[in-house]
Design a binder for these strands. Structure first.
Lengths: 210, 210
DNA sequence: CAAGAGCTGTGAAATATTTCACAGAAACTT
DNA sequence: AAGTTTCTGTGAAATATTTCACAGCTCTTG
């Protein structure tokens, strides 16, 4: 039995990769796989794969390797996506609309249940199957939903720590931020930054200097 | 003068954050800032900020702090985005279209110059100001452009290492992959994964277990 | 112009993460 | 049923990254 009180946060990123790989392997009808096989698909060492998994319990069978379906379920449980997670979306521009119809969220257990924007043409309507309200009504409407996470796809100019603070006050403790602006979360809140251009910059750096 | 032959790759991610912060600080008319000020905005320690920057040269003025504009330029140079970088986009679904009109790319120095898809309604037309061709013509058309990087927003079913290999043969050595599928790059190629659901999974994990 | 304050860049220490390598366990094989 | 193989989980070692803490410099002030 493995009991550590602390583990590197980057394990979580790798868990998502493992999860996708288990998906794929299951589709192929495989029921058991060894650490070195799964690790190769995830581009990590087999030792790292075993240690990552072992941080959350003993899942490996000593001669059959890992039960693929069981490990998949275990990771799902860790993610808390055994039951569907409700999410609020802020911002219905190009990106917001795309996210609203993004099938990946649905597949992974996340449902955008309500949307907020500031555009008069968009508010007080149902868009993409979800009700859309004016951002001014956030405090009034959001408590009616069970969303614990928010996705931020608002205009950069109007996105700041004030908005974060409003969300925090409404009990939102996790934010996925697509706005290319580094926002500092209040105590107890997590903000995950998705900066698409930053990824291109990294690639460009690697091409230029690597 | 600082000359290291090796440095942690995660510095590059932080450089992007610093870059955004310098943008903001410059907009406010600030010309110089101390490491502890910039570090606070980026949520890193001042020592880390100084060490990250020092890995690429001596930019700090010992009593005025860092020349904001100079440091900004220096990072731009490291990214290789002093001159505009041409990029090819593969896939014109919802996400592809959004990326095509994403202003963040333009602002950061990246131009999507040509697009490929498989939809007969989309190919051999100009869409969003860029010519769109059938993916079958990749080998014929792509060499006419100077793109060194590709953005992958194709359907998961039709995205695999075979496509990666075609890109590699055409001289594309850096790929930004929006398809939620872990692709293994051939020697000498970089693939940067953008898995949006993975970020939500991480947040969900933190809420559930943190 | 000497003393004081406060900065950067960086050795050295501390901490975090990854890899090595093997004990112990299961499943074959003869 | 003993030997062989090959696996997982994990101490211990190796490596990577971050933080500490300060020398040396610049500016300010009296």
């Amino acid at each position: 039995m493995s009991k550590k009180n602390t583990f590197p946060i980057c394990i979580i990123d790798r868990l998502s990769v493992y999860h996708r790989i288990l998906d794929r392997v299951m589709e192929e009808g495989v029921t058991h796989a060894y650490s070195h096989e799964l690790a190769a698909l995830a581009e990590v060492s087999s030792a790292q794969f075993r240690r990552d998994i072992a941080a959350f319990g003993n899942f490996g069978n000593i001669s059959k390797g890992y039960d693929v379906a069981e490990l998949h379920r275990a990771i799902t449980r860790l993610f808390g996506t055994e039951e569907r997670q409700q999410v609020v979306l802020l911002g219905l521009g190009n990106l917001g609309k795309t996210l609203l119809s993004y099938r990946g969220f649905t597949i992974r257990g996340f449902d955008i249940v309500v949307v907020f924007d500031v555009d008069p043409d968009k508010v007080d309507r149902v868009i993409g199957g979800r009700p859309c309200y004016h951002l001014d009504k956030l405090e009034e409407i959001l408590p009616k939903f069970a969303a614990k996470m928010a996705i931020l796809a608002t205009a950069p100019e109007s996105t700041d720590e004030k908005l974060i603070s409003r969300l925090n006050n409404l009990g939102i403790k996790a934010v996925l931020n697509f706005v290319p602006k580094h926002l500092i979360p209040p105590e107890g809140m997590f903000i995950e930054q998705v900066d698409i251009s930053a990824k291109l910059e990294k690639l460009s750096f690697l091409l230029t200097n690597g």
